[in-house]
Simulated scan of single mutants.
Amino acid sequence: MAYSDFKLQELVKIFALSLQETPDYFGTIQPVAPSDHLSLTLQRNLNLAVSINTEKARSELIIAPVLLEVKQQFDGQISLFSGIDFTVDSQQGLNGVCDFLISRSPEQLFVQAPVLTLVEAALRNLW
């Protein structure tokens, strides 16, 4: 089963998770200004990504540049992967290809924990 096939209610049951909804979770985090390069890239790419109107276009033209900026902001102390197989436990359905994966490790040749996965890089609600 692909990661994107899971629904939140199923995950809570299957893995005995408890949800903690915290309003304004990132409210105390200070914003980081984007580089001039990212601002220009997004300015150039946004209309094209919206016009093409596919997940792939949004992923390549909007999400990837933002994640590259994050990697740059972290001065190489994180690694970034795109479109890789991330099988954790196939018997429990924890397998599939992630659109993007960020690891706290600077190791770029292979994935090391801890990781943040972005299963579906969709921006449908922004416009």
Rank of each mutant, 00 (worst) to 15 (best):
residue 125 N to G: 04
residue 41 T to H: 04
residue 82 S to R: 14
residue 26 F to T: 15
residue 75 D to E: 13
residue 99 D to M: 06
residue 106 P to Q: 06
residue 22 T to C: 11
residue 22 T to H: 11
residue 69 E to F: 09
residue 41 T to L: 09
residue 112 Q to K: 14
residue 52 I to C: 11
residue 127 W to M: 00
residue 84 I to D: 06
residue 44 R to W: 02
residue 95 N to H: 10
residue 70 V to L: 14
residue 74 F to M: 13
residue 83 G to H: 10
residue 119 V to I: 15
residue 123 L to A: 02
residue 71 K to T: 08
residue 63 I to T: 14
residue 76 G to C: 08
residue 28 T to G: 14
residue 82 S to M: 09
residue 13 K to G: 13
residue 100 F to I: 14
residue 127 W to D: 01
residue 2 A to W: 08
residue 86 F to D: 05
residue 113 A to F: 14
residue 4 S to L: 06
residue 72 Q to G: 12
residue 77 Q to D: 11
residue 8 L to A: 09
residue 36 D to Y: 06
residue 7 K to P: 00
residue 115 V to R: 00
residue 65 P to K: 05
residue 96 G to P: 05
residue 97 V to G: 07
residue 21 E to L: 12
residue 114 P to E: 05
residue 47 N to E: 07
residue 36 D to R: 07
residue 88 V to P: 01
residue 78 I to C: 01
residue 54 T to K: 14
residue 125 N to V: 12
residue 48 L to F: 08
residue 9 Q to C: 06
residue 105 S to L: 04
residue 78 I to W: 02
residue 25 Y to W: 15
residue 85 D to C: 07
residue 3 Y to I: 13
residue 84 I to V: 11
residue 112 Q to E: 11
residue 29 I to F: 15
residue 38 L to K: 05
residue 117 T to R: 04
residue 42 L to M: 10
residue 104 R to H: 13
residue 81 F to C: 12
residue 112 Q to P: 02
residue 48 L to T: 15
residue 15 F to D: 05
residue 70 V to H: 00
residue 58 R to P: 00
residue 5 D to S: 11
residue 57 A to S: 09
residue 75 D to V: 01
residue 64 A to L: 13
residue 33 A to L: 07
residue 19 L to P: 03
residue 125 N to E: 14
residue 51 S to E: 15
residue 71 K to P: 05
residue 45 N to V: 05
residue 55 E to D: 14
residue 7 K to A: 10
residue 41 T to F: 06
residue 115 V to N: 01
residue 89 D to P: 03
residue 99 D to E: 15
residue 100 F to V: 06
residue 10 E to F: 08
residue 123 L to V: 12
residue 8 L to K: 03
residue 21 E to W: 10
residue 80 L to Q: 06
residue 105 S to V: 06
residue 99 D to A: 02
residue 12 V to P: 01
residue 14 I to A: 12
residue 78 I to G: 02
residue 39 S to A: 14
residue 39 S to H: 10
residue 21 E to F: 12
residue 18 S to P: 03
residue 100 F to R: 00
residue 35 S to C: 13
residue 81 F to R: 04
residue 28 T to A: 13
residue 31 P to E: 07
residue 16 A to G: 00
residue 124 R to I: 14
residue 74 F to A: 13
residue 127 W to G: 06
residue 117 T to D: 04
residue 11 L to W: 03
residue 34 P to L: 03
residue 40 L to F: 08
residue 66 V to E: 08
residue 34 P to C: 13
residue 58 R to A: 02
residue 37 H to Q: 15
residue 62 I to M: 05
residue 34 P to I: 03
residue 66 V to L: 12
residue 67 L to N: 07
residue 116 L to K: 03
residue 99 D to S: 10
residue 118 L to R: 02
residue 50 V to M: 13
residue 126 L to A: 08
residue 56 K to T: 05
residue 93 G to Q: 00
residue 76 G to P: 05
residue 58 R to C: 09
residue 126 L to D: 06
residue 82 S to C: 00
residue 92 Q to K: 14
residue 62 I to Y: 00
residue 104 R to L: 15
residue 23 P to D: 15
residue 2 A to G: 08
residue 22 T to G: 07
